[in-house]
């Protein structure tokens, strides 16, 4: 019997446990899809149609060129996660879904911050960036660009720190996530 979020048959206990569950936490769904045109539209359309909100979404190639990976985060307080995954399973081009356990997962996001920084502020900013293991990737007269990778929480914390300096622009990729250990995600 597979787990609730794979394409294997679902077992009684798992279905029961998952029934209309609002878990109240963020879920990271790692979805393997056939690399065919329109797959992303099908996924996005499904979410829109069923009234599910996607918080973040990333898409990229995998080690197999016929297969892509979609990583998306959904708020389990707003949506019954079992319905989200079961509806996703119905898409023919979806091969596998994992609802990643936070404890068993390494999740990362990349963010770029453009912050005002003249004179004195610059040093202080650089210090903060260092604490967060960020990299200053561009410096101009009145601004710096800092690159940060990490969990969503870490990036949010960094954002809170630099906002008072004058946040000109911020870009985030959305999370990608991989399961710990030897097994495949």
């Amino acid at each position: 019997m597979g787990e609730p979020a794979t394409k294997q048959p679902l077992s009684l206990e798992e279905l029961e446990a998952a029934a209309s569950l609002r878990t109240g936490r963020k879920h990271v769904l790692s979805i393997l899809v056939e690399n065919k045109t329109g797959v992303l539209t099908r996924i996005a359309g499904l979410f829109a149609r069923r009234g599910f909100n996607i918080d973040t979404l990333t898409v990229g190639p995998t080690e197999d060129e016929q297969v892509s990976r979609v990583t998306l985060t959904v708020d389990g307080a707003l949506h019954p996660i079992d319905q989200v995954t079961k509806q996703l399973h119905k898409l023919i081009n979806v091969l596998k879904i994992r609802d990643l356990e936070p404890a068993d997962t390494v999740a990362r996001e990349l963010a770029l911050f453009k912050v005002s920084a003249d004179g004195v502020q610059r040093g202080e900013l650089m210090q903060i960036a260092e604490i967060f293991r960020g990299k200053v990737v561009d410096v101009s007269k009145r601004a710096v660009i800092i690159e940060i990778t990490g969990t969503t929480d870490k990036i949010a914390a960094f954002e809170a720190m630099v906002r008072p300096f004058g946040l000109i622009e911020m870009m985030r990729t959305g999370e990608i996530a991989i399961s710990r250990g030897r097994g495949e995600t």
């Binding site: 048959p9 679902l10 009684l12 279905l15 029961e16 998952a18 029934a19 209309s20 079992d82 319905q83 079961k86 509806q87 399973h89 119905k90």
Partner: peptide, 17 residues
């Protein structure tokens, strides 16, 4: 036959796909 129908509107105590 469609797992997505099970517990969509009414939670099932004994689901059978």
């Amino acid at each position: 036959v469609d797992p997505a129908e099970i517990s969509k509107n009414v939670p099932a105590h004994i689901p059978i796909v």
